[in-house]
């Protein structure tokens, strides 16, 4: 959307008006904390019952196999013995969706291109039952420390970690069966109280450009029958539908129907018509969860 130069492209009013134009009426939300059971580590017992015996009240998240909302806890669920032993991870509900969209992860070569701090890497390892290989990349050394701590805590065995910009992944000389692009994004107000004060449309556009570069590199290293899952926690269409529309038109990729929590994505954004296949992506407006966008891509057939 081209704005005339006198329009202030930041602030709550600006973004809330954009959401209205996209069909969503802004409201304040407070998503509940969520956990995800690491099934690979809890073979012999029920970790939910064990947490409940400690006084933690949990509620099954209906659209996730291993996810639970924390309804009440008198202590931090990030400081229990069960957490420290890797029986579960703290992972927001919508953030648990992307990794579940891949088909048949066992024994596959998987790229987690923007992996730190590692919540989704651990989830991938869990879904793979520690088989195959995950190549986990991130550019930020400090965040990689957090990732490696997560891998150790959750007893992940199938991952190799590189400090690398996702835009350089073809340098590894590998072709991947599955690629998770949980790309750096502008985030959303549901998880950041200062979001409207901190973000401008310039940030959104800068992130969108970076995301396209990552998408283009991922397309280069995808096997012929491979799958890419693209995800952001941004509500801004530049980082979501517009990027997927661009990828479909320029990278020889096509969207794949997915069955998960969320609404059909937009195919018209601020008056601009997008490729109809973009509707297969899912847009999650903030409510029970934070805001999110997910999409599955494969080579055009």
């Amino acid at each position: 959307m081209a704005y005339p130069p006198f329009v202030l492209m930041f602030g709550k009013e600006f973004f809330v008006n954009r959401y209205r134009l996209l069909g969503w009426e802004f409201r304040d939300v407070a998503p509940k904390q969520a956990i995800r059971i690491n099934t690979m580590n809890v073979g012999g017992f029920n970790v939910v019952e064990r947490l409940e015996s400690l006084g933690v009240k949990l509620e099954k998240i209906p659209f996730l196999r291993d996810g639970y909302w924390v309804i009440r806890s008198d202590f931090s669920v990030g400081a229990t013995v069960e957490y420290l032993l890797g029986y579960y991870s703290i992972q927001e509900a919508a953030a648990q969706v992307p990794a579940t969209l891949f088909e048949d992860l066992r024994d596959k070569l998987v790229l987690d291109a923007c992996a730190a701090p590692g919540g989704k890497t651990v989830q991938l390892a869990d879904l793979m039952d520690n088989t195959g290989v995950i190549v986990a990349l991130d550019v930020n050394g400090q965040r990689l420390e957090a990732l490696m701590n997560q891998l150790e805590r959750c007893r992940v065995k199938n991952t190799v970690v590189y400090q690398m910009d996702a835009r350089r992944v073809s340098n590894l000389g590998l072709k991947f069966d599955r690629i998770l692009l949980d790309v750096p994004c502008s985030g959303n107000f549901a998880t950041d109280k200062e979001w409207f004060k901190r973000r401008t449309l310039r940030d959104v556009e800068r992130n969108a450009r970076l995301q396209r570069q990552i998408l283009a590199e991922a397309a280069k290293v995808l096997k012929a029958d491979g799958e890419i899952v693209y995800a952001t926690c941004s509500l801004e269409p530049e980082e979501n539908e517009l990027n997927i529309d661009w990828a479909v038109r320029n990278l020889g990729l096509e969207t794949v129907e997915i069955d998960c929590y969320g609404e059909e994505a937009l195919t018209e954004v601020f008056g601009r018509k997008l490729d109809d296949s973009v509707r297969r992506c899912k847009r999650i407006w903030p409510g029970k969860t934070q805001g999110f966008f997910v999409c599955k891509l494969r080579r055009r057939r």
């Binding site: 195959g132 290989v133 190549v135 990689l144 990732l147 490696m148 891998l151 065995k157 199938n158 991952t159 190799v160 970690v161 590189y162 400090q163 690398m164 590894l172 000389g173 590998l174």
Partner: peptide, 16 residues
Amino acid sequence: KLKDSTDKREGWLYSG
């Protein structure tokens, strides 16, 4: 699998 992958690609920080 990891041995094969890391033998061919140096520079990794963590594996297995």
